[in-house]
Each structure stands twice: as C-alpha cells, then as structure tokens.
C-alpha cells in the first residue's frame, strides 16, 4: 500500500485526466449521436448515406485501431494531433456511432400517430422533432445512453496507449517504478468501479427525472397544496 500513498498525487492527476477525457468524449459522443442519428432518419439521401457509412465504419472497427490511426497515421497527411485530442476524438466518434443507433432506434420506434398528430396541427418537421418526437424519445434513450457512457468511461483507459497520462497510465508508471503491482492495480480497479457506479446512479436519477408522467405529478402536487391553502 505504501506506493499507493506515496504516489497519491500522481494517481490524483491521472484521475483528473480520466475525468476530463470522459467528460469531453461524452460531450462529443452526444453531439455525434444526435447529428448522425437524425441524419440517418432524414428524407434526404445526401444526409442519410454519409451518416450510415460513418456509423458502420466506426462501429465496425476497433476503438483502439481508430485511436492509433488518428494518432499515428494522420501525421502522414500532415495533421499531427495532440494525444489528448486524438484520444477524445476517437472516443467521441466511436461511442457516438453506437449512440447514434440509440437515437435512431428510439426515434424510429415512436408511434406513427404522434407524427400524424403533429402534421394535423400544422407543425413543420423541425418543430415536430424538437418539441414532440425528441422529448418523447429521451426516456427510451436514457438507459442505453447510460451504458454507452459507462463504456466510454472504461474505454478511456485505452488513451494510456497513446501516451495520455490518465489513471491507467499513472498506474503503469507507478508499477514500473515501485513494483507494487497488486496494490496499485487493485486501487485503480476500485476507482474505475466507483466511477462506473456513480455514472449508473446518475443515469437512474435522470431516468426518474425524465419519466413521462413525473412532470404531471409535480404539477398536481402543487395544485393540491394550493387547494389545501385555499381551504384553510
């Protein structure tokens, strides 16, 4: 355990990097997911087609290959990315491709009647998506999004292989300098586990928050209170 305590600052730095990569990658993942997922559902082939190719390529190859490609192969085109940039880009695009299918699936499975009701009310496609179809699809998206985010968090450990000094990278450094292999790896396993668990809790909280009839329940509660106040 000595090594763990002695090198705690290094682990702390690693943890911060892991969190940074997770947050940045997660944000990119969400943007990519909605852009590609919605494009996939578009009526226009020029949007649907590239989105389809993007999704299949990024889901069909390994994240590690993508990350290495961005880091080692892109320089041959004169583009040298910072390791952190390459890492975040690979994570965001890869997990985004998976999440795009979540977005597509959730929206495509919306009842046809909802779209028809919107048309009957004169709502244009953009308004339909923004006000009705996407908000309704969010509850269905949340659990799989939660899984994607946990995946993304775990996959941040791969960034250590392109020299980003995350938690795994720090652990490897401490291992090679101190040789206290068991202690150090046990520590970071537990740390990753706690982070995954927190993400799961966050998803569960969001699910409850976005459940379809929760809003109505709160409004009703307010109403009841008002009525009681009025009666008093």
């Amino acid at each position: 355990m000595n090594a763990v305590i002695e090198y705690a600052p290094l682990l702390w730095q690693g943890l911060l990097t892991t969190l940074t990569v997770t947050v940045l990658g997660g944000a990119l993942c969400l943007v990519v997911a909605f852009a590609a997922g919605l494009a996939r559902l578009s009526r226009h082939r020029i949007l649907r087609w590239p989105a389809g190719v993007f999704i299949e390529v990024f889901r069909g190859t390994s994240l590690l290959v993508q990350m290495f490609w961005l880091f080692f192969a892109l320089p041959f085109f004169g583009i040298q990315l910072h390791p952190l940039t390459a890492a975040v880009l690979a994570l965001g695009l890869n997990e985004g491709a998976y999440a795009a299918e979540v977005v597509r699936g959730a929206i495509a499975s919306r009842a046809k009647g909802q779209t028809e009701a919107c048309i009957a009310l004169g709502m244009e496609p953009a308004l339909r998506l923004r006000r009705i179809i996407i908000p309704q699809s969010i509850p269905a998206m949340l659990p799989p999004f939660g899984n994607v985010m946990v995946d993304l968090l775990k996959n941040t450990s791969l960034v250590s292989l392109v020299t980003v000094a995350d938690l795994t990278f720090s652990a490897q450094m401490i291992r090679s300098t101190t040789g206290q292999t068991t202690a150090i790896f046990t520590t970071i396993l537990v740390m990753y586990f706690v982070l995954s668990y927190l993400l799961t809790l966050l998803t569960a909280w969001l699910e409850k928050r976005f459940a379809l009839d929760r809003k109505a329940l709160t409004l009703q509660r307010k109403e009841n209170i008002l009525m009681k106040v009025g009666a008093a």
């Binding site: 775990k154 450990s157 250590s160 652990a171 292999t181 396993l189 995954s196």
Partner: peptide, 21 residues
C-alpha cells in the same frame, strides 16, 4: 457487476502483471 464496471485493459494488466506473482 465489478467486472462490468472496470476496463478490460486494466483487467488484462492484472492478469498479466499481478497473477504471475
């Protein structure tokens, strides 16, 4: 739950570096 909550890479390191000891 634990295995699902931790990275495959770190699990591989454990098997590769820790178990031999």
């Amino acid at each position: 739950v634990f295995v699902r909550g931790t990275p495959l890479l770190v699990q591989a390191y454990v098997a590769f570096f820790v178990l031999p000891s």
